[in-house]
Design a protein around this nucleic acid. Structure first.
Lengths: 109, 109
DNA sequence: CTCCTATATTGACATGCATCGATATAGCCT
DNA sequence: AGGCTATATCGATGCATGTCAATATAGGAG
């Protein structure tokens, strides 16, 4: 998997530079992931942890949703490259990918 | 209804501190507006104009979509407070609302 | 090996939404 | 008035997606 364009890491500023259709699509995917209140809550819960990571088991109850639903949203965020996971025994810990948020923020410059 | 459940105080840097459910929903609405490639293209087209505004008639052809489709997306962006419009005779000019993008960028800090 | 817990996946359902053609509205011009 | 252009709205259609119960998978503990 080497979809990275040679020119830039991901995306240049959205409103100023010339972006390829793939860059626009990639940005849209990331923004759409954030375009769900449930996933925004998830992101905030993960970011809120002191160590920057949180066990998936601690995400179900605060959201008030079924476990498969939470798992689904975590997968969406994982597939989008927004979070990374780390299995430690029975539990799986999620972290926000460093720079993923900054990438979006830079696109809005 | 008490909005904020401060069970997990958590770190504030990523998506700001304690947000009410309404604030999270509002952010999600804005992100979802950007979560469509067509609307991202529209935003870039509007931002690319020298005067910062563009006639709606100049947005249909570059997108390659039907006129009602473009009008629909412009309405979505307008309802979300992302763009403002200004009728000038037969034509309607769209501008990006000042600070709308910055608001989202600040939310990602 | 057998339970138990944690997480993911599947299948189904309902809702949301992007898109279009057809039509309506609005404003200019002659 | 009538005709023309620009834009919005309506109605329909097909696809994407959020949600859940049920089930599968994975790993630890006894």
């Amino acid at each position: 998997m080497t979809p990275s364009p040679p020119s830039r890491p991901c995306c240049a500023p959205l409103l100023t530079d010339a972006l390829s259709n793939e860059e626009v699509s990639r940005l849209a995917v990331l923004f759409r992931v954030l375009g769900e209140p449930t996933r925004l809550h998830l992101l905030r819960l993960i970011a809120a942890q002191p160590g920057g990571e949180v066990c998936a088991c601690d995400l179900v109850e605060p959201l008030g949703l079924a476990q498969p639903t939470v798992s689904h949203h975590l997968k969406v965020m994982y597939d989008a490259g927004l979070v990374e996971r780390d299995r430690r025994g029975t539990w799986i810990y999620y972290r926000i990918v460093p720079g993923a948020i900054a990438l979006l923020r830079d696109a809005l410059t």
